[in-house]
């Protein structure tokens, strides 16, 4: 892998992504062959914001590779509570660990860490900005279950403004041929300007923005649902007004094609009714399983890769 860090999806070329997917599939087929792949290596998980899935997924991935983890899962239990800067924390932690995984509520925090760390940094979610390893998970799920990442219509629904997984997924999919986007959200939660101007418009991608789900469901190959995130709103009234705008239930699923994949980065609140879980098109829990294997592939590759600069 050429890049030292993984801060956003474009840090990986399409070829590097393919290598990661191939390695992840090999690990899934025979995990026993990789139980010592990272023996003697230490990964620091610096989680300044609550997380279940992502942190467990990373830590489980490292343990299954024979490595070990150190870290914290809330800022209050670290030196941050004493006012330490992100740059200083990253400098210090890179004296102990071989790899840093960081989640932070502020956008761009992992880039600040990467600028002062002496080991590779992985962004495990920065505010409403990017979440590249969720994107690896999403891409691997689609690729494995659909067979390809090209020529498909992807509907992204819900909070497209603060939904970091949405921004990363659009960025990553923008490099694959024949991908159409249908962006389903209330006007207030549309994708940010930089996603529209710098990715969708700049690359001349086929996309449209709609406010209703029903009319577009029949044309989708993938429906990517997202949660309206309470923690991203400064004003609770806005959150309450927007949170129940899109709910996927059996009635709506009846409008969709037989092969439409329903994905969700999780956790969900109520945007997918529990009754949908038994539908074979509901693949969000399967997605979480792929997440650990792709993170195993990523950790292995980053620890073995040559660092740039």
């Amino acid at each position: 892998m050429e890049s030292k860090n993984l801060l956003e999806p474009m840090d990986l070329t399409v070829e590097e992504l393919e290598e990661l997917f191939d390695l992840a599939e090999k690990i899934m087929e025979a995990p026993e062959k990789y139980t010592e792949a990272c023996k003697g290596k230490l990964m620091a998980t610096l989680f300044y914001e609550p997380s279940t899935r992502t942190r467990f997924s990373f830590e489980a991935a490292m343990l299954r590779l024979g490595g070990q983890n150190i870290g914290f899962s809330e800022a209050g239990s670290s030196s941050v509570a004493k006012g330490e800067s992100i740059a200083d924390t990253a400098s210090t932690v890179s004296c102990y660990a071989d790899l840093i995984v960081m989640r932070h509520p502020k956008e761009g925090a992992p880039r600040v860490a990467a600028n002062s760390a002496r080991v590779p940094v992985i962004n495990a979610g920065d505010g409403g900005h990017q979440h590249p390893t969720q994107t690896l998970t999403d891409l691997m799920t689609i690729r494995s279950l659909r067979g390809s990442l090209t020529h498909m219509t992807v509907g992204l629904c819900g909070d497209l403004k603060f939904g970091r997984t949405v921004h990363s997924l659009i960025k990553a999919l923008s490099r694959y041929e024949g991908v159409r986007f249908v962006l389903i959200s209330p006007e207030e939660l549309r994708v940010p300007d930089y996603v529209r101007k710098e990715i969708l418009d700049k690359k001349g991608l086929d996309y449209r923005e709609v406010e209703q789900m029903d009319e577009v469901l029949p044309e989708l190959d993938v429906l990517y649902m997202t949660r309206v995130q309470k923690e991203r709103f400064f004003n609770e009234e806005d959150y309450i007004r927007l949170k129940d705008r899109f709910i996927l239930d059996e009635e709506k699923m009846a409008l969709a094609g037989e092969k439409m994949m329903v994905l969700h980065p999780l956790p969900r609140v109520n945007e997918i009714a529990v009754e949908v879980d038994k539908d074979p098109r509901a693949l969000y829990f399967e997605q979480a399983r792929y997440g650990m294997y792709i993170r195993m592939a990523l950790i292995m590759t980053m620890l073995q890769g040559k660092r740039r600069g």
Binding site: S85, H104, K106, G108
Partner: peptide, 9 residues
């Protein structure tokens, strides 16, 4: 929400 709002250096 930008990190520069808290990371003064």
């Amino acid at each position: 929400r930008c990190v520069t709002s808290i990371e003064t250096n």
